[in-house]
């Protein structure tokens, strides 16, 4: 077994990038590997509450992320500065997450066998 950290940086609702990354996350979890997520930069919007995706034929990405726990993906890390820079607070997020300061991100990554950028 290997430990995977998926470090997502892309905004949701911009093409199919987030959907395709989630497919990799779910495939990896289906192989019974240990999977965690780290949301950085624009990716913090992926689990924002109160999305209205039907206006542009999109899907509620927060709802898709909430399915992760079925696959035993329970550890979702969010960078504190990425939230602050975008005017978001923890209550804006639809899932319970671990907050990580930017200067601790490198330490977090060191705990994993594979850091998967996306």
């Amino acid at each position: 077994m290997k430990k995977y950290l998926f470090a997502l940086r892309s905004a949701p609702h911009s093409g199919c990038v987030v959907q395709e990354m989630l497919d990799v996350v779910l495939s990896t979890a289906a192989f019974e590997q240990q999977v965690s997520l780290l949301l950085l930069d624009e990716a913090v919007f992926a689990i924002k509450n109160n999305q209205q995706p039907e206006r542009h034929q999109g899907k509620d990405t927060a709802a898709i992320f909430s399915a992760l726990e079925i696959y035993d993906v329970n550890d979702i890390y969010v960078e504190v500065e990425s939230l602050q820079e975008r005017g978001l607070i923890i209550d804006d997020l639809s899932l319970s997450v671990h907050k990580v300061q930017r200067n601790k991100i490198a330490d977090l990554m060191k705990q994993y066998d594979i850091v998967f950028p996306g």
Partner: peptide, 18 residues
Amino acid sequence: SGLGQLVEATLEADCFMV
């Protein structure tokens, strides 16, 4: 092929690069 081939590759390899 499918994504399983990607996961298998990351498991088999010493180093994975994107």
